[in-house]
Design a protein around this nucleic acid. Structure first.
Lengths: 138, 138
DNA sequence: ACAAAACCTACAAATATTATAGAGTAAATG
DNA sequence: CATTTACTCTATAATATTTGTAGGTTTTGT
């Protein structure tokens, strides 16, 4: 399941997408609108900024804004940033690979291959669908 | 990511599948072989039994054994039992449905539909693949 | 100068996961 | 029939992760 962090991130991105002609949007406005703790959201937006999805402006009249087009932000990117791996096993994760400690050998692990399939199908969707798709549905 | 509980469950089921002509297999044997805490595994096997996947025999010479054919045990069943929902959002879960608290309306939630797609593709695989498939690969 | 708002680090609280303990119950066996 | 083996059940402890808070610093517009 997606964490609250990730869900909040999507809410914030969606809000910014809807208000992109408004320029910089202060955290306060988003947190009030979506009923999210101001400080918690702060951390999330900072991460999104560091990852290159958002720009920001300090001081009075400042806030956050998208620096990419909504169709350039795949859902997979957001999930990976806030939640980590999309795969169900570390040994089939593309971005957060780790060998399974309890598995003797990776070749002999029967789960391995099935979970790689699940990962591929999931990514097909999450990499194709973008913030744009979410915006179109709200 | 799958929890240890779920991974242990798969290991145990696989072990039981490989040793099914041996009759009842005591917890001890599995926990030693896979290096799992005896007591922890105990809880897991009990859950699998209550769910109708395993049978058990008490006393000397007792243990657990499969009461279904490996091809009758889809991976989805095991994951749901130990880990809960397979879907990424509660509002698109088939077995553990709950409305998303922070979403205003479900129809207006842009994530909803995409995550239902992900769920469907994931289930296509996890419901088709069974313990049999894992056994064949080990 | 002042107020608004992002930036940053650390910490606290809540929740979930993983693991352990110990007292029952049932069955086999000598 | 006593003993040993092994499942059953419930409660609790330990650990890790997630969620949320606190408080100060820096930047910017007026």
């Amino acid at each position: 399941m997606l964490s609250k962090k990730t869900k909040y991130a999507f809410h914030a991105l969606t809000y910014l997408g809807k208000h992109k002609d408004q320029g910089a949007v202060p955290i306060q406005e988003i947190s009030t609108h979506h009923n999210i703790s101001h400080k918690f959201l702060e951390n999330i937006l900072l991460e999104l900024k560091k990852a290159g999805l958002l720009g920001s402006k300090k001081g009075k009249g400042g806030g956050y804004y998208l620096i990419k087009l909504p169709n350039e932000i795949p859902l997979s990117k957001v999930i990976r940033l806030l939640d980590g791996p999309i795969a169900l096993l570390p040994c089939v994760s593309l971005n957060y690979y780790e060998p399974c400690e309890e598995c003797a050998s990776q070749e002999k692990c029967g789960l391995n291959m099935v979970m790689a399939e699940v990962r591929d199908e999931t990514l097909k969707i999450l990499e194709m669908k973008t913030l744009q798709d979410i915006l179109e549905r709200e």
